[in-house]
Design a binder for these strands. Sequence first.
DNA 1: TCACGACTTGATAAAGTGTGCAACTGTTCA
DNA 2: TGAACAGTTGCACACTTTATCAAGTCGTGA
Lengths: 111, 111
Amino acid sequence: MSVPLYQAKAEFFKTLGHPARIRILELLSERDHAVHELLDRIDIEPSSLSQQLAVLRRTSLVTSTRVGGEVVYSVSVPEVRDLLLAARRILSGIIAAQGELESELSPTAGS
Amino acid sequence: MSVPLYQAKAEFFKTLGHPARIRILELLSERDHAVHELLDRIDIEPSSLSQQLAVLRRTSLVTSTRVGGEVVYSVSVPEVRDLLLAARRILSGIIAAQGELESELSPTAGS
DNA sequence: TCACGACTTGATAAAGTGTGCAACTGTTCA
DNA sequence: TGAACAGTTGCACACTTTATCAAGTCGTGA
């Protein structure tokens, strides 16, 4: 392979490394959404949303279809949902551990 | 929670968004490694490695212990391994799909 | 105690990203 | 036909990340 796998992996994770893109994938893994629907749910400028959608399209994580006046997006890789769930699990673990550590250092109040 | 979960997730993925950090996590999920061992396996300057290790430490994905003259790193969140595997699966799927598309467009040779 | 190997830290230039505004394309419907 | 949506694209500016070089810390063994 021309691009080492670990580099492709890094690229892939980079794609997920933006709050708006995470939100988009979460919403799309519930059901397909038109751009203006995403816009209602995510607090972001239209042009910015469009840009983040473009990033996800480039990586083939989502696809878009024009349906009359609107453009509908859908996730093209359903396994992404598992990945987001796995991330949540790991994150919860880390946050919980940090919480414990914090209360250990300061038993009466959190800083 | 003060930081929305989707933002924490984005931060988390951002942490994984660098080839050296992926390599480090892959090596560490095989077994613990001292810094100079990682250095033997990853083509990168010592100071750069140290910097990437610092990023992983900040996110609590790895921990370090001084053992005599060397510093040994280990993954502190074993589930990371599952995440990397999941990423590989998704990535293989995408790459395979792109391969198919390519040979469809140009049945006799890849561009 | 001093030199050396093993790491980390600081500083900085170069490269990469994200944001918001303005302009532009494509559709619908009155 | 043209006003009004629905989206996308082009830019310029601010910000972040990364690579590299130099300097510094911490043990260990001669």
